[in-house]
Design a protein around this nucleic acid. Sequence first.
DNA 1: GTGGTCTAGACCACC
DNA 2: GTGGTCTAGACCACG
Lengths: 121, 121, 121, 121
Amino acid sequence: MEFDDKVPIYLQIEDYICQQIITGALAPGAQVPAVRQLAVTLTVNVNTIQRALSALVEAGVLVSKRGRGNFVTTDEKTLAAVRQKAITTAVAQCYERLVGLGLSADAMVQALQDYIAKMEG
Amino acid sequence: MEFDDKVPIYLQIEDYICQQIITGALAPGAQVPAVRQLAVTLTVNVNTIQRALSALVEAGVLVSKRGRGNFVTTDEKTLAAVRQKAITTAVAQCYERLVGLGLSADAMVQALQDYIAKMEG
Amino acid sequence: MEFDDKVPIYLQIEDYICQQIITGALAPGAQVPAVRQLAVTLTVNVNTIQRALSALVEAGVLVSKRGRGNFVTTDEKTLAAVRQKAITTAVAQCYERLVGLGLSADAMVQALQDYIAKMEG
Amino acid sequence: MEFDDKVPIYLQIEDYICQQIITGALAPGAQVPAVRQLAVTLTVNVNTIQRALSALVEAGVLVSKRGRGNFVTTDEKTLAAVRQKAITTAVAQCYERLVGLGLSADAMVQALQDYIAKMEG
DNA sequence: GTGGTCTAGACCACC
DNA sequence: GTGGTCTAGACCACG
């Protein structure tokens, strides 16, 4: 995995875990890979992983079982919220920036469609 | 102006200046407010402003005239590139994140339209 | 190390690092001395070192690994380009000045050979 | 005329005047253009011109006649020295940098010849 | 310990 | 007054 130097790695890892959950790569109730395992696969320090997981536990997305590991919550409301928040955040950020650049609603949609066409066409 | 803690202030200032240029608030050839002035209005240290402006000078977006101030380039190609890059960057970031979340092209466009409707409707 | 007052220290440090790389004192992939270490040995402020290294990172000559240090790139193309640019820059500057003084091509070569003879003879 | 932002303009103007003298564009005894005239043609502030001329007067290259202007010295020794110094300085700077890059004497001469061939060939 | 960012304050070159 | 450079010293993210 690649990290953007300009934003804290632990935040990027948070997003990464959420992404795994949303896409189903990490199913509800599933065990999250061990901290040391994640540290290896993401080539990141253990402390950095810990920080990211702690935040997710705090948010209720993961539940930590002492001595056994971390698990994805099975609470559907929380999971739905995670998904919705991830999407909204991405879209909102884009919207704000494009508004700042003076684009109209139509121009925004057009810009997105153009980009999608370029990437997938 | 408000700054996001998670990304370097000097980068946000770069974006801010570019935005001013793109929206026409800073016309081609216009003088950029004095470094010390910007420092006051943005409530940021002079050096931080300098760092942002230096990068823009390096990129050719601004030209620095010693003892006189910084000015927006009049080179149309550069200006067009600035605008295009700003839009593409915003859209690309959004696209990448939504792809990571498993959204289809249609779902992406829908999500954007929904958000726009919510904000502007 | 000695610095020339008339040109920014950070630029001289850039050149110094490049020189170390070109001569092999800093091998490809090798770790550059810590910022604070360089600051001590070059008797220069840490920020000044940072500015020089940042430019080299930007240029791809160095790669920065957060919390671990700065390393010389292993990309051969980049390294070759660094070497070539350093030589060309030095020669070009000399050439331009001598042309401005009205010297012929032969006179230039002669002047260089004379100087070399004086220094090494 | 173009100036390199990285070295003081007044030094570049000094070099420029010396160059004019060496190439004969300013003959021995000739009057140097008025300060305000130079300021216009070089698009530089009057004070900056003054500073450069003062240094040359100090060095004996120019002689200042109150109320009448500045004139190129007619002292042949001084003029010869100016020329020699200009050449030596250019060559020495190049030599030092190439030595620092580990080039042999032959390689230096070769690099210069290559560059000349590229420019004039 | 290592790099990255920011602040505060100073000095210089130039207009 | 304007930008450019440098210093000193602090704090944060990361290993």
